[in-house]
C-alpha cells in the first residue's frame, strides 16, 4: 500500500463548506490528517475550530464538500455504514460530557455494553483497564460530579477509547484546567499517541500544550473563513510571514482594533 515516505491519510476533508442559517463559517477547507499524528486545530474565538471538529465527527452536516474517515464519507453515510464509521473514532467533549447519572465505570462500560457481546465481567475488566490507562485508579465507582475537571476529562478520554478507536478527537483539551493538570493531560495524549498509535485531532489554544503535543497544526481564521497556516508549531512560530499567525504564537493583540 503506502510506501515508506508516503504516509497513510486517515481523514480527508474535501472542499468543506460549513454554514449556520445561511451564514458561512468555513469555506473551501481541504485537509489531510495522517495516521498516527497529533494534529492541533488552532484559531481565535469564532474562527470555526469547534465547527470544523463537529463536522469531522458527523454531528453537523456540511453545506458542501466531503469528509472521508478512513476512506468512507461520513457526511453521506447513514444507518449501518454510519455506525461503522462512528466506531472508528472516539470524542472527548469540552466538558467531558460524562453521563451524570452513571458512575465513571458505567460511563466507560456503556459503549462496550451497547456494541459488543462480551460478558459483564469482561466489560468491567476492560473498562477498569481503560481507566487505569488514563491514570484513574480507585475512582471507578465515583459519580462524575465527584471528580475534578482534569479527572472528568481523563474519564471522557477513557470512554472515548472504550472500543479501541484509531482516532481520538479532543475538544478544548486544556480549557478550564490549571497548568499542572493541563501538562499532565498533554503527557497522557503523548503517551497514548506513541504507545497505541492513535491519531489525535485536538482543538486547543494553549500555546504550551500545542508545542508539547502537536506534530502539525492548522490555523483557522474568522475573516478568511478557512485555513491560513499549516505546518509544525515550531515552523509556524519561527518562519510564518502571516501577521495573524505571528500574533497568535507571540500572544500579541490584534492591531486592527
Amino acid at each position: 500500500m503506502a510506501s515508506g515516505s508516503e504516509r497513510e491519510v486517515i481523514i480527508r476533508v474535501m472542499d468543506l463548506k460549513a454554514a449556520y442559517d445561511g451564514q458561512v463559517i468555513l469555506d473551501h477547507i481541504n485537509l489531510e490528517v495522517y495516521a498516527g499524528e497529533v494534529l492541533a486545530i488552532l484559531g481565535g474565538s469564532g474562527s470555526g475550530k469547534s465547527t470544523l471538529l463537529k463536522h469531522m465527527i458527523g454531528l453537523y452536516k456540511p453545506a458542501a464538500g466531503k469528509i472521508l474517515i478512513d476512506g468512507e464519507d461520513i457526511t453521506a453515510a447513514s444507518g449501518a455504514t454510519r455506525l461503522k464509521i462512528l466506531r472508528k473514532f472516539g470524542v472527548m467533549y469540552q466538558s467531558g460530557a460524562l453521563f451524570g447519572s452513571m458512575t465513571l465505570l458505567e460511563n466507560v462500560a456503556l459503549p462496550l455494553e451497547e456494541f459488543t457481546d462480551l460478558p459483564p465481567e469482561a466489560i468491567r475488566l476492560i473498562a477498569l483497564m481503560k481507566l487505569e490507562r488514563v491514570g484513574l485508579n480507585g475512582v471507578a465507582e465515583r459519580m462524575p460530579s465527584e471528580l475534578s475537571g482534569g479527572m472528568q476529562k481523563r474519564g471522557a478520554i477513557a470512554r472515548a477509547m472504550a472500543l479501541d478507536p484509531r482516532m481520538l478527537f479532543l475538544d478544548e483539551l486544556s480549557a478550564g484546567l490549571d497548568p499542572v493538570t493541563s501538562a499532565e493531560l498533554d503527557q497522557l495524549v503523548l503517551s497514548l499517541a506513541h504507545s497505541l498509535k492513535i491519531t489525535f485531532i485536538v482543538v486547543t489554544h494553549e500555546l504550551p500544550s500545542i508545542f508539547t503535543i502537536a506534530d502539525r497544526v492548522i490555523m483557522l481564521d474568522k475573516q478568511e473563513k478557512g485555513i491560513i497556516a499549516i505546518g509544525s508549531p515550531q515552523e509556524l512560530r519561527d518562519h510564518s510571514d502571516d501577521p495573524r499567525v505571528h500574533q497568535f504564537f507571540f500572544r500579541q493583540a490584534s492591531s486592527e482594533n
Partner: peptide, 14 residues
C-alpha cells in the same frame, strides 16, 4: 448544554 447528547450521537446511540 454539557454535550451529553452529542456524546450519545457520536457513540452511535440514538
Amino acid at each position: 448544554v454539557r454535550e451529553e447528547i452529542d456524546a450519545l450521537k457520536t457513540m452511535g446511540l440514538d
